[in-house]
């Protein structure tokens, strides 16, 4: 409707006025192998990208105290403001962690104790063919087809469960290196055939920068809860053989979920009539001396579980043209490898 009425979204240069630099903490302890990092930066002026490199907070003393009493020091090896645990430290389900930071100027900060909540088993990932319309940057409506995905998780019905979800996928493509040509600038000043032996088949490993968050507010109470995750757009060349989809789900506490929701809204919110007005979720890290000081970011702990599945051409009801028609090696495609990944034939 908004589109019909020529509604549109345009970039708008707003003169953001920064008044204070606030400390920003980003850190997580998971059950995946370490080392884990805690990044200390400060807020940045929106629209002014020049200050991006002055923002790291160096020379701080950072440590994590576990509920079992051990203290883990984090080291900033290259003064980048990123502090690492040692490689052998690993998060444990049920354990609580507290972050302590002492800045160079002596100000000291503490986080709340965050509990590493268990991630229930993921039963499976379901897919459903669908089309999705979205408004592009050029304010045109674009339709794409693909799959809605959902996770079935065996989580306890009595508690409210909240998750952070990431995903990657890999697919095989087919090109025509034997048809490669090159421009002969020295000789005939024309295009000449330069057939190549390698490579006609590659695997494209897409690292998706997107994330989503999920909660069971809608359908808590069942022993297997269904969570809608994300839309995976699919084009024909991705279905030369099949798509490998890997979904990683992190357990989140309710508070950590609310923080992640504010990050989510910052990226995916629309500013429309129905959107609630934005707000800042404060960090769970406080200045020990001055509890009113605004600290941003979050420190949380998650158990991480991963599940994968394949999507086959038979799942996709459209006519598939999987040939890239690309007259060169498939290695020229971004994020490609000619080596078959070990999970490809699992």
């Amino acid at each position: 409707m908004w589109m019909l009425l020529a509604g549109c979204i345009d970039p708008y240069d707003y003169p953001f006025k920064e008044q204070t630099n606030y400390l920003v903490v980003e850190g997580a302890i998971t059950t995946q192998p370490g080392p884990y990092s805690v990044t200390l930066t400060t807020t940045r002026n929106i629209g002014n990208e020049e200050n991006a490199f002055k923002l790291r907070v160096q020379n701080a003393k950072v440590s994590i105290t576990t509920s079992t009493g051990s203290v883990v020091r984090l080291i900033d090896q290259d003064t980048s403001g990123v502090y690492y645990t040692s490689g052998n430290f690993r998060g444990q389900v049920g354990e609580k962690y507290q972050l302590t930071i002492v800045l160079e100027n002596g100000e000291s900060y503490e986080s709340e104790q965050v509990e590493l909540l268990p991630m229930p088993d993921i039963d499976s990932i379901g897919i459903e063919y669908a089309s999705q319309k979205y408004i592009s940057q050029a304010n045109t409506v674009i339709e794409r087809t693909g799959f809605y995905t959902r996770a079935f998780i065996n989580d306890p019905p009595e508690t409210e469960n909240t998750y952070l979800v990431n995903w990657d996928y890999t697919y095989k493509i087919f090109t025509h290196p034997e048809l490669a040509t090159a421009y002969d600038a020295e000789g005939c000043e024309c295009w000449v055939a330069t057939p190549k032996a390698c490579c006609s088949v590659c695997w494209v490993e897409e690292k998706v920068p997107d994330f989503t968050i999920a909660n069971d507010q809608l359908n808590n109470g069942s022993s297997v809860t269904q969570y809608d995750l994300f839309f995976l757009p699919v084009v024909g060349i991705m279905l030369y053989e099949k798509i490998y989809l890997e979904v990683t789900i992190n357990s989140l506490s309710k508070d950590a979920y609310l923080f992640w929701k504010s990050v989510y809204d910052s990226r995916y919110g629309q500013g429309g009539i129905f959107d609630s007005t934005p707000n800042t979720v404060e960090a769970n890290v406080y200045n020990v001396e001055d509890k009113d000081e605004l600290v941003l970011g979050y420190f949380y702990a998650s158990e991480v579980k991963t599940i994968s599945r394949f999507i086959h051409p038979t799942d996709f009801p459209e006519r598939i043209d999987s040939d890239t028609n690309y007259p060169d090696t498939c290695l020229f495609y971004p994020n490609t490898t000619a080596e078959e990944p070990e999970y490809w034939n699992e």
Binding site: Q19, T20, Y22, E26, T41, T43, I46, L294, L296, Y298
Partner: peptide, 19 residues
Amino acid sequence: FSVPENGFLFDGVLVGNYT
């Protein structure tokens, strides 16, 4: 409307800080 005073990077996303 509420303008973020500044922003901060978290997981690669610049999040507005609405003070």
